[in-house]
């Protein structure tokens, strides 16, 4: 099971590299999202994948699942959410100000109007 998830993470990261190497701003942002998904799958797998009880409070549960990777996962999800959201705003702003969403055209020092 672990090996399958790791392969899936590899596929996700490969897809994200493809997306991030493209020239459109939006694709790059989606690429960073997919990259973090791949990394998160890796993080989850690191705790070991198994069916277990909730690791708090319940005395009757015999096998616990490791809570720490899940806690870290949630933190990273929150952070990625905020990052992606902010960058979508910035990407629209970039598109409006620079008039392009092609990163090929985002070189050098652009002339400022203000």
């Amino acid at each position: 099971m672990e090996i399958l998830v790791i392969i899936l993470a590899g596929i996700l990261i490969g897809a994200s590299v493809y997306l991030m190497l493209s020239k459109s701003l939006l694709r790059i942002i989606i690429g960073t999202g997919v990259l973090s998904h791949g990394i998160l799958l890796m993080l989850l797998t690191m705790g070991g994948l198994k069916r277990g009880g909730i690791p708090v409070l319940d005395d009757s549960v015999q096998s616990y699942s490791d809570p720490l990777p899940q806690a870290m996962l949630l933190t990273v999800i929150v952070i990625t959410f905020a990052l992606t959201a902010y960058m979508l705003v910035i990407a629209i702003r970039v598109y409006k100000e620079l008039g392009t969403d092609n990163v090929e055209n985002m070189k050098g020092v652009p002339r400022d109007d203000d």
């Binding site: 973090s36 990052l83 960058m87 910035i90 970039v94 100000e97 620079l98 985002m106 652009p110």
Partner: peptide
Amino acid sequence: TKIQLQEGFKYYLVNVISSN
């Protein structure tokens, strides 16, 4: 400003990848 948005996006991309 234009240069801030342009370079800010690159800064974001580099740092997001390294954070991951």
